[in-house]
Computed example of a mutant assay.
Amino acid sequence: MRWRAHIEPFARPCMQAFWRLTRGATLGVRAIAERPDGAIALVRHTYIDGWHLPGGGVESGETAPFAVARELAEEAGVRLTCEPELLGVYANHAAFRGDHVLLFRAAGWENCATQSEGEIECVDWFLPSDLPAGTAGGTRRRVAEIYDGVARVPYW
Rank of each mutant, 00 (worst) to 15 (best):
R2K: 07
F10E: 15
F10Y: 15
P13C: 13
C14M: 14
A17W: 10
A17T: 05
A17P: 03
F18L: 13
W19Q: 05
R23Y: 09
R23W: 07
T26V: 04
A31V: 01
A31Q: 02
A31E: 03
A31Y: 01
P36S: 10
P36M: 01
D37H: 04
A39W: 04
I40R: 05
A41V: 07
A41Q: 04
V43Y: 11
I48K: 12
W51E: 03
L53N: 02
L53V: 06
P54G: 00
E59M: 13
E59F: 09
E59C: 05
S60I: 11
S60K: 15
G61A: 03
E62D: 12
P65H: 06
P65S: 07
A67N: 05
A67I: 10
V68E: 15
A69M: 13
E74L: 12
E74I: 07
E75C: 00
E75K: 12
A76W: 04
E85I: 02
L87G: 02
L87F: 06
V89I: 14
V89F: 11
V89P: 00
V89D: 08
A91K: 14
A91P: 01
N92A: 08
A95H: 05
F96M: 10
R97Q: 08
G98P: 01
D99W: 06
V101L: 15
R105T: 02
A106W: 02
A106E: 14
G108Y: 01
C112R: 07
A113E: 15
S116H: 01
S116M: 07
E119G: 06
E119V: 12
I120S: 14
D124A: 14
W125F: 06
F126D: 07
D130F: 10
L131W: 02
P132L: 11
T135H: 15
G137D: 15
G137I: 10
R142C: 09
A144G: 03
V150Y: 04
V150E: 15
V153F: 08
Y155S: 09
Y155I: 14
W156Y: 04
